[in-house]
Simulated assay, not measured.
Amino acid sequence: MTARFGQIAFVVWRESTEALLVVAILHGWLAHHAGARVATGRYFLWAGVAAGIGGAAFLAAVILSLANLFEGDREDYFQIAMAGLAALLILQMVIWMHRQGRGMRKELERDAERALTGGNWLGLFSLAALAVMREGSETVIFLYGILASGSETHRTESIAAVATGFAFAATFYWLIQVAARRFPWSVFFGVTEVFLLGLAASLLMTALDRAIGLGLISPLSEPLWDTSWLLDDTGRLGSFIAAMTGYRARPELMPILVYSLYWIAAAALLRPARQGAAEPTS
Rank of each mutant, 00 (worst) to 15 (best):
Met1Asn: 09
Leu253Asp: 07
Phe5Gln: 01
Leu208Tyr: 05
Gln79Thr: 07
Ala249Met: 06
Ser186Gly: 08
Val178Trp: 15
Ile95Trp: 09
Gly246Val: 09
Glu193Ala: 09
Arg4Ala: 15
Arg155His: 07
Ala129Lys: 07
Trp121Asp: 00
Met93Leu: 03
Leu270Phe: 09
Glu138Gln: 12
Gly118His: 08
Phe142His: 09
Gly6Asp: 02
Trp263Leu: 00
Val258Lys: 04
Thr156Val: 11
Trp96Asp: 06
Gln92Val: 01
Gly101Asp: 09
Ile80Ala: 10
Pro280Ile: 05
Ala242Glu: 11
Asn68Ala: 14
Ala170Arg: 03
Arg274Met: 14
Trp263Ser: 01
Asp209Cys: 05
Gly136Leu: 07
Tyr262Leu: 07
Asp76Gln: 05
Thr234Glu: 15
Phe142Trp: 13
Asp73Leu: 09
Pro251Gly: 08
Ala57Thr: 06
His32Asp: 15
Val132Glu: 07
Leu197Val: 09
Tyr77Pro: 01
Ala273Lys: 04
Glu193Ile: 02
Phe142Ile: 07
Leu203Asn: 13
Phe183Ser: 02
Trp29Ser: 01
His154Arg: 12
Leu261Lys: 14
Ala169Glu: 13
Phe70Trp: 14
Ala211Pro: 10
Leu26Trp: 06
Ala61Tyr: 12
Thr164Asn: 06
Leu197Thr: 00
Pro251Gln: 07
Trp121Met: 00
Ala268Asn: 05
Ala267Gly: 15
Ala277Glu: 06
Trp229Cys: 04
Tyr247Pro: 07
Met205Arg: 06
His27Cys: 02
Gly48Ala: 04
Ile256Tyr: 05
Thr139Leu: 15
Ala179Asp: 08
Ala36Arg: 03
Ala34Lys: 00
Arg102Met: 11
Ala131Ile: 02
Gly35Ile: 09
Trp229Pro: 03
Arg236Gly: 15
Asp76Val: 04
Thr156Tyr: 06
Asp111Thr: 11
Arg105Phe: 03
Trp263Val: 00
Val22Thr: 08
Thr227Asp: 07
Ile176Ser: 11
Thr171Asp: 00
Ala249Lys: 13
Ala273Thr: 12
Ala277Gln: 03
Ser202Tyr: 12
Val12Ala: 13
Ala57Trp: 08
Met1Thr: 04
Arg182Lys: 04
Arg114Glu: 05
Ile95Lys: 12
Phe78Leu: 09
Thr234Met: 15
Ala31Leu: 13
Tyr262Phe: 14
Ala128Lys: 05
Ala131Lys: 03
Leu59Phe: 10
Val191Thr: 02
Phe58Leu: 14
Leu270Trp: 11
Gly190Gln: 10
Gly165Asp: 10
Thr139His: 11
Arg37Lys: 13
Gly84Cys: 10
His98Ile: 02
Val62His: 13
Leu116Glu: 01
Glu279Thr: 02
Asp209Tyr: 04
Ala50Val: 11
Val11Arg: 10
Phe70Ser: 09
Phe58Ile: 10
Pro184Thr: 13
Ala81Asp: 12
Ala266Leu: 01
Glu71Thr: 06
Ser202Lys: 05
Ala207Met: 04
Gly190Ser: 09
Asp226Asn: 15
Val38Asp: 00
